[in-house]
Design a binder for these strands. Structure first.
Length: 447
RNA sequence: CCUGCGGUGGCCGAAUAGUUAGGCAACAGACUGUAAAUCUGUCCAAAGUAGGUGCAAGUCCUACCCGCAGGA
């Protein structure tokens, strides 16, 4: 299959592998590298569209699974599409629901997360294989987790038990695309299945061929129905799946690159286990993410925009951009904001060790008159002290969630703009060194 | 003055006489395609006071102190 619109992504500068580009979408241009705030159910939590624009958001996410369940994609279509419904006239990328297949399924069953940040899950890794580990407590634990699972991957799609009312729904690749077309998304994603670090090689092989099938079906359905959708010039991105394994990731990169998608989203849970060749004592989430991008990027055509699904912590953005990744989305800024975790730059003590954040609940901020980040010029930092923000947080005042979200979203978006500028100026490495002090030795790119 | 009810951590609040109540607050931490304004730890004890009965009393008995309600 040929690429339909080869011209909607233009690279305007490169600094080694890092690149700055412009992506043309039906609802506007997007300058890359770009961070896309996540608005799961038709709203970036706590922020209005004006808040988003004022803080530099160019494109946001919406979610197929959530919007399909509530209020229903047909209702949104009837109301003129998601853009009109939520009064956001910029581009929207919609997730396919694949992540929910994982977060409501394997993630619960295996006791894992999308990104495993520490090697602390060893006991759970054991639980995986009942033939090898027969400890009754562990088996009991996995049985209990199974009862909590709310999604099941079938060959024809994902069967969900709604987290809202328990009703059953089958999300097929076609259905997912139909929902996204109804929503009027600018970038649709194919339905995929995320693999957990605890899936064995047999399951991984089966799952990948199933995902391939789903992706092709998604693509065919998309091409057939696009013109009758709410947004007839939408793009379709393929998803590059896999586990923490170089060979698998590379062959997946080749596969997805050959399908004629408008872009590639790199997905999957990013952690490793003894089953996938990871040195458990040595790995970190950062390494798993960095390795994956490094392996894969060389096999994806230069002219395709590449999106790291669900990635968005400061250090990961630097590492990924360095390998040539163009797009990021992540719940982290908004979720962290609501939980009192606020971003700070290196000038204010942000380091790789504290994830460039402070916890505003800490008592040391009780009478701190400084801004959250004195070098930040967002609305929140321009007007309020750490002392006041701490008070709002502890009091659970609603204003806190908005102010904190404004700051965090502004912070990450500003960071990507800073990075973009550094690429244009061919000084990306200098910028990275300013931020990632202990760069050497922490990310060790595995062969 | 009489009658009734009640006095348990910083606060609220349980416990057929025998076991760590549990919340909130405080403190610390986590969070990566949002089942998340969520979750996880840590900290905290005492029985209003004085006696009595019992193997054993926050729990039963007596007196006193304090609070609340009603009455004179």
């Amino acid at each position: 299959m040929k690429k339909v619109r080869p011209d909607n992504f233009k690279i305007i500068a490169k600094d080694n592998l890092a690149r700055a580009g412009v992506l043309s979408l039906p609802h506007g241009l997007v300058e890359t590298p770009v961070f896309m705030p996540v608005g799961t159910q038709g709203s970036v939590k706590a922020l209005s569209p004006d808040d988003l624009k004022e803080n530099g958001a160019q494109i946001i996410l919406g979610n197929t699974y959530h919007l399909y369940l509530r209020p229903g994609s047909e209702l949104i279509k009837k109301m003129g599409g998601l853009h009109k419904f939520m009064n956001w006239d910029g581009p929207i990328l919609t997730d396919s629901g694949g992540f929910q297949a994982f977060s409501l399924g394997a993630m619960i069953e295996h006791g894992v997360k999308k990104v495993s940040s520490k090697a602390q899950d060893q006991s759970k890794i054991k639980v995986r294989d009942r033939e090898l580990y027969k400890d009754s407590n562990e088996i009991q634990e996995i049985e209990q987790r199974k009862d909590l699972v709310m999604s099941q991957v079938l060959d024809e799609g994902v069967e969900f038990k709604s987290h809202l009312d328990g009703s059953k729904h089958l999300l097929t690749p076609e259905k997912s695309i139909q929902v996204q077309l109804d929503l009027g998304s600018d970038i649709c994603l194919v339905l995929d299945e995320l693999l957990s670090p605890m899936h064995n090689s047999k399951y991984v092989a089966e799952s990948l061929s199933r995902t391939h099938r789903w992706e092709k079906v998604s693509q065919q359905y998309f091409q057939k129905k696009l013109k009758s959708g709410t947004n007839p010039n939408a793009l379709l991105f393929g998803i590059l799946q896999g586990v923490y394994n170089k060979d698998i990731r590379i062959s997946e990169a080749k596969w997805v690159s050959a399908q004629g998608f408008d872009g590639v989203s790199i997905g999957g849970s990013l952690g490793t286990s003894q089953f996938w060749g990871g040195d458990i004592l040595d790995w970190t989430a950062r390494k798993a993410i960095g390795d994956t991008m490094t392996w894969v990027k060389l096999f994806i055509p230069e002219n395709l925009p590449v999106h790291a699904l669900g990635i968005g912590e400061v250090v990961n953005i630097f590492d990924c951009v360095e390998q040539g990744i163009d797009m990021f989305d992540c719940v982290s800024p908004t979720r962290r904001a609501r939980n009192g975790s606020l971003y700070i730059s290196p000038h204010s003590g942000g380091t790789i060790l504290n994830n460039f954040t402070l916890l505003i609940s800490n008592s040391r901020f009780r009478d701190d008159p400084k801004q959250i980040d004195p070098s930040c010029n967002c609305y929140t930092c321009s007007n309020f002290s750490r002392s006041y923000m701490r008070h709002l947080f502890l009091s659970k005042e609603l204003l806190f969630y908005r102010l904190a979200s404004i700051h965090n979203v502004h912070f990450i978006i500003q960071l990507t703009r800073l990075i973009r500028k550094s690429i244009l100026d061919h000084r990306f490495q200098n910028l990275k060194k300013e931020w990632i002090q202990d760069y050497k030795g922490i990310i060790v790119t595995k062969n």
